[in-house]
Design a protein around this nucleic acid. Structure first.
Lengths: 354, 354
DNA sequence: CTGAAAGCGCTTACAG
DNA sequence: CTGAAAGCGCTTACAG
């Protein structure tokens, strides 16, 4: 036995590499193959004899070997990082989305890098480009409203960065899109209010720059119409998806004569504004005014009365986006019902007084 | 001129590298130095002649060159990634902390990788270890309550990973700690209620497993005592920093005879529970019961009445943690007042009825 | 089905 | 103050 022929009489199982982690060379030597063959196993090449593969995998398991993502990335000219690009004021959306993406990349060796940005900044596009090119990202997930910006999509196509756009309408090729079903969620809110017997119904939309604003209005309006209730333009206001805009719009709507008996706000933040105005004015919900929101973020159940709202499956959406980005949609398919928004009826909605 | 002596008659300014980004070799060639010297400039070595440095920096600026973090990381045996490790149910805390860390690493070439974890999982420590070693993280920021787990600190020391612990008490060496001043924030809440004239004051603590629970209680109790108000044990309940626990504790406190005229909850979530119980019971705040929270997250101003609370400078704390981790505290020092919690008086607190 | 050579874009010793 | 050589831990051609 020459001194170089083997060293497996040393303790080279887990933690036995003199404090350093095993590398592909260690695995190759222990399994008596070239590192190229170990590489084939790592990358799931089909061109490896079953027996060889088994031997290599045994050594990998025994040593706890994990390939170095930086070295792989350097050779691949592409990192194992997924970027989440967003410009969203709602922390809970961001956190839920992150959790979902993390669900999707779990045990794949990919990691999530977060990148908030400012769509109104002059360096908006240059920032995104720099971020992606510098890190050689494997791909990015775009959430509204960044996802709705065609300049971003064009940029990503130009620099050949894989991406998934999450939006309420199909803005791109199906394999680059996750469509959230805002329209259906808003329709559930419309049916709910119609079923309760409301005729004078108010609506506070999000800003027109968000596609979801239009989708939620359309779903709501269609569902009302289907139940024979007309959404009167005089009961419609344009908000900005913010608490403050909810307050301003609610003040206007509740000052009308006659006022609406119910208000559907485009998101929970604005619904919170409606409730605050109502309570401040001495109105009671739902006796004097029914209020329905959209999102079902934590705030919804903390308000008084607890808010009837539409729960969007943000985390599931994030997981699906990650799986699609990694081309692994089939691995953990979501049940269809998991991807649909669902109406959560709490105490802020009830029949109109008369 | 030999064919290899120079090629700067080609267009090799920004975007002129035939679609590829410039590398250290391109810069070295254009600046007529070795790549080692370019490397010295990148790494701010003092041993470069000023004239040489200027020439290299000019070429870097002209070409838009940015060193590849993966290649640097591979050579350094350490990535340019900062990990945020947390087990925290409050989305807004997480998002604010992320924003702060991103503030701190802006333009440094480092990126933020998020890693939520479950402190109660049997693989908790192994997960963290795997995450750090696999990615060769440059360092991690730990937030409560992960930051308070000595096993985590020991693990990080063992694998020689730099870390910063954010906690309400000095648990570690100063250069590894960012101390949040929970005690002072809670004291402001205590002074506020004492000044309003409350004598029968209730307190709902966070879970004993969080150091902040003790700090907030101590600060509150001390401030009351200084004002001659005793915090009677019968008005103290142990919550869990959750909305539900706030409800449960409030139900108990408000059922006492006589009930407290004011309640300080250890965080906004529990304060929201207190307000919900009060409103549900037909009590009015602040006329029948004053309520004060801690955090000033979005929910605070959405509640009815808007919640008096203590605003913690989470984002600033995150920035300071990142700067400390990168050893650049001096670069953008925070003004001391930026790092202190501040009482935000809204409408949920007022003088007791009698 | 398997491997030896060259290379990804940087840095660390080591010289000078 | 500057550089040539070797190496970080992988993968991509290219052979066989």
């Amino acid at each position: 036995m020459t001194s170089s022929s083997s060293s497996d009489d040393h303790d080279e199982t887990e933690g036995g590499f003199a404090g350093r982690r095993p590398t592909i060379n260690d695995i190759a030597r222990l399994a008596r193959v070239s590192k190229k063959t170990v590489s084939r196993v790592i990358n799931r090449s089909p061109f490896v004899k079953e027996e060889t593969r088994a031997r290599i995998e045994a050594v990998i398991a025994e040593t706890g070997y994990a390939p170095d993502p930086q070295a792989r990335g350097l050779a691949f000219r592409r990192s194992f990082l997924i970027g989440l690009i967003y410009d969203n004021p709602t922390p809970q959306y961001v956190v839920n989305m992150q959790l979902g993406i993390l669900d999707g990349i779990k045990d794949t060796g990919f990691e999530l890098v977060v990148h908030p940005c400012d769509r109104s900044s002059p360096s908006f596009l240059a920032d995104i480009r720099g971020f992606i090119e510098r890190q050689r990202l494997a791909g990015v997930v775009l959430t509204p409203s960044v996802s709705e910006d065609e300049r971003v999509a064009e940029l990503l196509a130009e620099i050949e960065c894989d991406y998934i756009r999450i939006a309420s309408v199909e803005l791109d090729a199906p394999d680059r899109m996750i469509v959230s079903h805002d329209r259906q969620g808003a329709a559930a809110a419309g049916r709910h209010l119609a079923e309760l017997g409301h005729k004078r119904v108010g609506f506070i939309s999000g800003p027109p720059t968000f596609r979801s604003s239009h989708e939620r209005r359309a779903g709501f309006e269609d569902a009302l119409a289907a139940a024979g209730v007309k959404l009167d333009p005089k009961y419609i206001r344009e908000g900005a998806y913010t608490f403050e805009s909810g307050i301003a719009c609610a003040e206007q709507l509740l000052a009308l004569d006659p006022p609406p008996t119910a208000i559907f706000a485009g998101n929970d933040e604005m619904a919170a504004g409606v409730l605050q105005v109502a309570l401040r004015s001495g109105l009671r919900a739902p006796e004097d005014i029914s209020v329905v929101g959209f999102d079902d973020f934590q705030i919804a159940s903390r308000l008084w009365p607890p808010l009837t709202t539409v729960r969007a499956p943000t985390r599931v959406t994030g997981r699906l986006a990650a799986l699609k980005l990694l081309g692994a949609q089939d691995e953990a398919p979501a049940r269809p019902e998991e991807t649909l928004p669902v109406l959560v009826v709490r105490q802020s909605s009830g029949p109109p007084r008369r």
